[in-house]
C-alpha cells in the first residue's frame, strides 16, 4: 500500500512541477532576463541589487552623515576605504576630510555598509563602472565637501595596510608610505607622484 501512496505523492510533485514550468512558459511577461544594452534606458534593477558604495547625505543639512568613525575601514576585508578626519569647529564633531574609496580593490561585499552605525554608507546599483586605468577607480566619496574636492594627487600611493595596523589617522598613513614607497615603485613603475 505504501508504495501506491508514495507513487501518487511523487506523481503529484512531478505534475505540480510541470504546472509551474508551463506557467512560466505560457506567460512571457514573467521573464526576468533583461536585454541589457538595448534596454539601458528602461533598465529595472532589483531592489536589493548592490554595486559600488556611496556616502549618504542628510537631506536637511546637506552634510554627509559620516562621522569618520572608521568602522567601515575596519570592516573592509580588502582595505578599500581610506579615511582622514578633522574636527568640525562648528559642530565639534568629526567629519571626513577625505573619504577615499578604492573601487579597484572593492569586492562589493557590503560589509562596510553593515558596519556603519550612522546610516552614512549605502550600496548603489551603479554597475557600469568600467574604466581605462585602475587609477580612475579611486574616488573621493565626499566630493561635495569643498576641502575634499577632486584632488586625488596624494592618494592611491599606499599598498594595502596590515589589518592590525589599520587606522583612520592620516599620520600613520604617511608613515606607511615611507616604508613601502621604494618597493611600490619597483612593482608599479607608473609615475604616481604628486604633480
Amino acid at each position: 500500500m505504501n508504495i501506491f501512496v508514495k507513487t501518487l505523492r511523487g506523481l503529484k510533485g512531478l505534475l505540480s512541477g510541470m504546472g509551474l514550468t508551463f506557467g512560466y512558459f505560457a506567460r512571457p511577461s514573467k521573464v526576468i532576463t533583461q536585454q541589457y544594452p538595448e534596454n539601458r534606458n528602461t533598465l529595472k534593477l532589483p531592489e536589493r541589487s548592490q554595486a559600488r558604495i556611496d556616502l549618504i547625505k542628510n537631506a536637511e543639512t546637506g552634510r554627509y552623515n559620516c562621522i569618520a568613525c572608521g568602522l567601515c575601514v575596519k570592516a573592509c576585508p580588502n582595505n578599500s576605504i581610506e579615511l582622514t578626519k578633522f574636527k568640525d569647529p562648528e559642530t565639534k564633531k568629526f567629519r571626513p576630510e577625505k573619504f577615499v574609496y578604492h573601487f579597484e580593490r572593492c569586492l562589493v561585499c557590503g560589509l562596510c555598509v553593515e558596519a556603519c552605525k550612522f546610516d552614512a554608507l549605502r550600496m548603489t546599483s551603479e554597475f557600469e563602472t568600467a574604466a581605462w586605468s585602475p587609477d580612475d577607480l579611486v574616488e573621493i566619496l565626499n566630493k561635495d565637501d569643498p576641502w575634499a574636492h577632486d584632488d586625488k594627487s596624494d592618494i592611491g600611493q599606499q599598498t594595502a595596510p596590515d589589518k592590525n595596523e589599520q587606522t583612520a589617522s592620516p599620520a600613520r598613513d604617511t608613515d606607511r608610505q615611507e616604508h613601502t614607497g621604494a618597493e611600490e615603485k619597483t612593482i608599479q613603475p607608473k609615475d604616481r607622484s604628486p604633480k
Binding site: T21, F22, Y24, F25, K30, V31, I32, T33, Q35
Partner: peptide, 13 residues
C-alpha cells in the same frame, strides 16, 4: 527557447 521560457529566461536573442 522552451528551456529559457520555462526558467523565466528568454533563450537565444
Amino acid at each position: 527557447k522552451v528551456a529559457g521560457h520555462m526558467q523565466q529566461r528568454v533563450g537565444p536573442m
